[in-house]
Amino acid sequence: MSDRLSIVVVEKDRERALLIVDSLRASGDHEISVISEQSGLARRISERNPDVVLVDFANPSRDMLEELTLASSPLERPVAMFVDRSDDALTRAAIEAGVSAYVVDGLSAGRIKPILDAAITRFHMFQAMRAELAATKRALEERKIIDRAKGVLMKARGLDEDAAYALLRKTAMDQGRKVAEVAEALVTAAGLLS
């Protein structure tokens, strides 16, 4: 086996794939390719005959890769999921980060670790970014709906802004619900009544 490893990254999202490829390049001189098509995935991979396959843990097409774990002829190299040969901590880190790695039988853990470390960082970073974006978006939406609910209360009950918010918060606490939920219910009801 030569020093260069061939790595296939299965990823539909182009931006994300580029991020992962960049970080893999930084971890060593490897031959890296990206597959973004889902159809015929197992065939596409076996044509390239890679040493390592990296794929999102949550990718529905992952089952297609399981076919590769069965070597159907002596010439084909069986591929195993990385988790059954590595140290536990690395495995857990990979799964937490959402990476599953398929590795050709017989490849030593020492050679895979830097690659997996690099992939983990990237997968992790991307996931964190996505979660952050979703959380920010949700917070903004909640704020908008609470503002509208405050407006409804101010108009209907002649309250000032602070009193309107206090009433929303008290109702939410009494009912064991979130302020945003109470606000949403109020806005919906007000819309129906107007």
């Binding site: 992952r62 890769l65 495995t91 799964i95 599953s100």
Partner: peptide
């Protein structure tokens, strides 16, 4: 779970 392999790994790894 999104796939059988992911489901299998989730239970095997104790998630």
């Amino acid at each position: 779970a999104p796939s059988w392999s992911t489901l299998r790994d989730m239970v095997a790894l104790g998630q």
